Simulated assay, not measured.
Amino acid sequence: MDIQTVEKTLSVKEAIESRHSIRKFEQEDISKENLTEIFELVRLTPSAWNLQPWRFYVVTDHQLKEKLQDAAYGQKQVTSAPAVVLVYSDMEDVIANLPEVVHPGLSPERQQEEVANLSSFFAGMSIEERGQWGLTQTNIALGFLLTAIQGLGYASVPMLGFDHEKVKEILSLPEHVKFAAMVPFGRQAAEGYEHHRFPLEKIVTFH
């Protein structure tokens, strides 16, 4: 069954308040239109210097999901979900294409200056350090992704419990990429646990 349209769009407040991690999903395909809508929102995520180091590998093929489930130590939500997205950073791709991130509204001279400054900054880092830097930005996109999925009527579960090297091999991803999460998502077929979160006074300081 192909869900062609989103039935109800939640407000940001509703999406955040209603989101729970779900591990059992309805066996309904997600249309290309709805997948595109989710990522049209996610691509608006902000990043330092607008570098946008996040990349998304969306898997809907069942055989490929079975391989991912094996790499995720048999966790059943991977094949239960109609779609699984691997969220990762690829800073080496960013560095190789720096002119793409510079705002076109800048003068040509200013654009060249920006590229030179960024090249110099990241040249002082190792590939590992650049990867970790990009991962901090990609985690912002992960938050946007979870909110967009929920806001458009789907449910999700972010996972880090998987063999990262094995997933890179399965998806033919470069060795240098860093994973933020594996995210199975779809229409929920089970209820999640009630929220259990720290009170504000533990996590927020007002002064």
Rank of each mutant, 00 (worst) to 15 (best):
N34L: 13
H196P: 01
E128H: 08
N117G: 11
Y193S: 14
I16T: 14
F25Q: 09
S120P: 01
P158H: 12
E26N: 05
A141R: 01
D90A: 01
G186P: 09
K32Y: 09
V102I: 13
P108L: 00
G161F: 05
E113S: 12
S156Q: 11
Q112C: 08
H62E: 07
L145C: 02
T45A: 08
D70R: 14
L98W: 04
A83D: 09
T9G: 01
P53G: 06
F121R: 15
S120A: 15
A123H: 12
H62C: 04
L135N: 03
K67V: 00
D2S: 10
K67W: 00
A148D: 05
L118H: 01
V85C: 02
Q137F: 14
P184V: 02
E66T: 05
E7D: 15
Q27R: 14
L152I: 03
L51V: 13
K166L: 05
L118G: 06
A180R: 00
I22Q: 10
I127R: 06
D2T: 14
L142T: 01
V177M: 00
P184M: 07
F25K: 06
I3D: 09
T147K: 04
V78W: 13
V78K: 14
E7P: 13
R55I: 00
E169L: 03
I149M: 14
Q4L: 13
D29F: 08
G153F: 05
H62L: 13
A116L: 04
P104N: 09
F185W: 08
V12Y: 06
V59P: 04
H176T: 11
E17P: 08
D2G: 09
Q150W: 04
L51D: 01
K8A: 08
Q27W: 06
Q111V: 00
N139A: 12
K202A: 15
H62W: 06
Q77H: 07
L98P: 04
T60K: 14
Q75F: 07
N34W: 03
A181Q: 12
G186T: 02
E37I: 00
E169W: 00
A48Q: 05
Q188I: 04
F144K: 00
T136C: 12
L41K: 02
L142S: 03
S80K: 05
K8G: 01
D70V: 14
G131C: 07
S89E: 09
E14N: 12
G134R: 02
I30T: 07
S21G: 09
T147H: 09
L173F: 09
E33P: 03
N117E: 08
H103Q: 07
L41A: 11
G124F: 11
E114M: 12
E128S: 08
A116Y: 03
S126F: 13
D163S: 04
T36E: 14
L106N: 14
V42F: 13
M182W: 11
S126K: 13
